[in-house]
Amino acid sequence: MNGDPEKIEPELNGGNTVKDKIGRFFITLYDLHRFMLRFFREAFLPPYEFRETIRQSFDVGLKSLSIITLTGFIVGVVFTKQSRTSLLEFGATSWLPSLIAIALMRALAPLVTALIVAGKVGSHIGAELGSMKVTEQIDAMEVSSTNPFKFLVVTRIEATTLMVPILVIYMAFISLLGAYLDVHLNEATSFPAFFQQAFMKINLYDIVSIMIKSAVYGFTVGMAGCYIGYNAQQGTVGVGKSANKSVVVSMFLIFIEEMLLIQVLNYGKQFF
C-alpha cells in the first residue's frame, strides 16, 4: 500500500532521544529492506513497463552526457599531466598510456561517473518522486489502477542500473581521448600506439569487474533516490530534503561500496 502511514511507530516518530534515533534507524533499515525486496519482486513479475524503462534510460543518459564528457576529458588531461612528473623521475613516461588506462578503467571512470550520476540523476529522482508524493500524484496513479511502484520506482532503478555502466565506458573512452591528446602533444605518440599500449594491461576481468561495479553504483543511485523520494513527507520542504538526501546517501554508499568491491574483485582476480 502506497500510503504506509503506519510504517513508523508514532512514539518513535517525533522523539529526539538516542533511543528514538536508534529505533528510527533500524525501522528505516527494515523498511529499506522491504523496499528492495519489493523492487526485485515487481521487476520480475509482469506486466513490464519496457517503454517507461527505455524513456527513463534515455533521460538518465542524456541528463548526464554533457557533464560526463566535460569531466571525463578534464580528468584524462589532468591525470596524465600529474602522472608524467612522477614517471619522468624514473624515465618511464612510455608507461603513461598503460598507467592511465589502468587507473581510469579500474577506479576513476566508475567512481567519477557514479558520483556525477548521483548528483545529477539521484537528486532529480529524489525531488521528482518527492514532489509526486506530496502532491498526491502517486496516490492518483494508484487509484487509477496503475502500480506506481512498478511505473515509477522499478523503471528508474532499472534505468540507472543499465545506464551507469554505459556511461562509465563512455567516460573512460573520453578520458583516454583527453589523455591521448596530452601524451600526443608531449611525447608525440600516435593514436594507434597510445591505445595499443593503453589496453595492453587491461584484460577481460577488468572489463567485467568495471561492469559489475558500475551496475552496483547505478542500482545504488536509483534505489537511494527512489526510496527517499517515494517516502518524502512534510510538503515542499520534504521535496528539497529528498533531493539533498538522495545525493548525500548515494555518494556515501558509493564510497563504501567502492571499498568493499575493490576487496572482493581483487580477491576474485586470482581465480581468473
Binding site: 521528482e128 502532491t135 500524484q137 492518483a140 494508484e142 487509477s144 489502477s145 502500480n147
Partner: peptide, 20 residues
C-alpha cells in the same frame, strides 16, 4: 483492488495532475 478501482473515480483536492 486494482480491478475494483477501475469502477471508482477519485478527484484529489490538489487535482494531482502528473506535472511531467
Amino acid at each position: 483492488l486494482q480491478t475494483l478501482r477501475k469502477k471508482i473515480g477519485f478527484s484529489f483536492q490538489g487535482s494531482a495532475l502528473y506535472d511531467g
